[in-house]
């Protein structure tokens, strides 16, 4: 019994230790965001990589989520004759929750993993050490552009994701569920509030920051060759996903407390 408790205690302390290191790493990286030199070319490169190249995967996820949501809610609401709420449910679910969370998870898989693998490979092949001999701060050159780009581009991706998700629901609504197009659009706008969209965008920025920070953290501290890079990639995706889901609850609670 004592062994079991000791195991739990050890795991908990280990978790706290890792969170502490991650926090210190994030604060260290943030401190470099506000001090020159800045690398605008690298920032733009990362913004294109994160924002533009993630559009297909985020768009497809949003499209099918919106379509499935319309089908599922129609089936459920038909049980108590509330089919007309489908459009409202789709738009609110997409803008508040599904848009940012699904985009966040997809981008964590695509970008978080890629950042961890790229930085991890740079670490184990001594490329990060090279920066020191070339009078360049690796944090400013490698981490700051990625973290800023992640934070700035996720809201952009979520806006696109919201639009495509709602469009998916609309297509199913009028082609499969025989809604009138004007009525569906009217229902979509009727109950949508600015706060719903703002909440989604705030979540998106936080998720983008989390994805980039955890990807950079695990990649930057990668050790031990190919196996270490593989482990860093896995940890980056898993920890980003967990932090996204946890922070999603906290942000929702903060916005709608009371």
């Amino acid at each position: 019994m004592l062994d079991f408790l000791s195991l739990i205690g050890h795991a908990f302390l280990n978790l706290l230790r890792r969170l502490g290191f991650l926090t210190i790493f994030i604060l260290w990286s943030l401190s470099h965001c506000v001090r020159p030199p800045f690398y605008p070319r690298l920032l733009i490169h990362q913004m294109i990589n994160i924002g533009y190249y993630s559009l297909p995967v985020v768009g497809l996820t949003a499209l099918f989520s919106g379509m499935v949501l319309a089908l599922q809610s129609h089936t459920g609401f038909a049980r108590f004759s509330a089919e007309e709420a489908v459009a409202t449910v789709v738009v609110i679910s997409i803008t508040r929750e599904l848009g940012p969370v699904l985009a966040g998870l997809m981008v964590a898989g695509r970008i978080g993993a890629s950042m961890a693998a790229e930085l991890g490979t740079m670490r184990v092949t001594e490329q990060i050490d090279v920066f020191v001999t070339l009078s360049t701060n690796p944090a400013k050159y490698l981490l700051v552009p990625r973290i800023l780009a992640g934070t700035l581009m996720m809201p952009f991706l979520v806006v696109i994701s919201d639009i495509i998700g709602v469009l998916g629901g609309y297509l199913v609504g009028i082609h499969e569920l025989d809604f009138n197009s004007a009525t569906y659009i009217n229902r979509t706008w009727e109950f949508l509030e600015p706060l719903d969209v703002v909440l989604g965008l705030v979540k998106a920025a936080v998720f983008g920051f989390i994805i980039a920070s955890t990807g950079c953290y695990h990649g930057y501290h990668s050790r031990g060759g190919a196996q270490g890079v593989g482990a860093a990639t896995t940890h980056a995706v898993v920890s980003a996903s967990i932090l996204i889901l946890t922070s999603n609850y906290i942000i929702t609670k903060l916005f709608f407390a009371g």
Binding site: T121, T125, E126, Q127, D129, V130, V132, T133, S135, N137
Partner: peptide, 22 residues
């Protein structure tokens, strides 16, 4: 770090694997 950077400007290094930026 600032003073260390000033010292490191005196150094050049050839790494074992060359460590070129891919």
């Amino acid at each position: 770090p600032r003073k260390r950077d000033r010292i490191n400007r005196k150094f050049g290094m050839l790494f074992q694997s060359a460590a070129l930026f891919d």
